[in-house]
Amino acid sequence: MEMDWIWGLVGGLLIGLGGAVYLLGNGRIMGASGILGGLVDGTGRGSAGERAAFILGLVATPLVLSALFRPDITTHLTDDYAVVIAAGLLVGVGTRIANGCTSGHGVCGISRLSLRGIVATVFYILAGGLMLVLFRHLLGVI
């Protein structure tokens, strides 16, 4: 537990390195919602191969690493599927309307000191925190 912040920092550096490769190599912003969303709504049809390659790498490394080192790993996601579906819909709609998520607005936006990235990050963190106050502490649902 007390080592968690070191793993957080190491993992964070790798995430930023991935974003740097995508930016300097392909001239694109590494935003998870944009990369997937462009495939879903067809706006990214012209760069579909590149998007699919990114998602392949994103899914493959945790698969290999978990099989090798953490076969017992779990996401601890709630088994209340109504909550899961509502949350998934909100994340999908929200990230596409805001044009970014934690990686695009958070990591890539804040690092270029983009006002939009910073404002988006403040709002999604506040909204997320309020949901925990409401649904965990007041209602006891999650």
Binding site: V84, V91, Y124, M131
Partner: peptide, 21 residues
């Protein structure tokens, strides 16, 4: 759009603890 979308995203993120990545 930036504000509304981010609030909706944050709500879902808080509920489940998952974002797209």
């Amino acid at each position: 759009r930036l504000i509304t979308g981010s609030v909706l995203f944050g709500m879902g993120w808080g509920l489940a603890g998952l974002c797209p990545g």
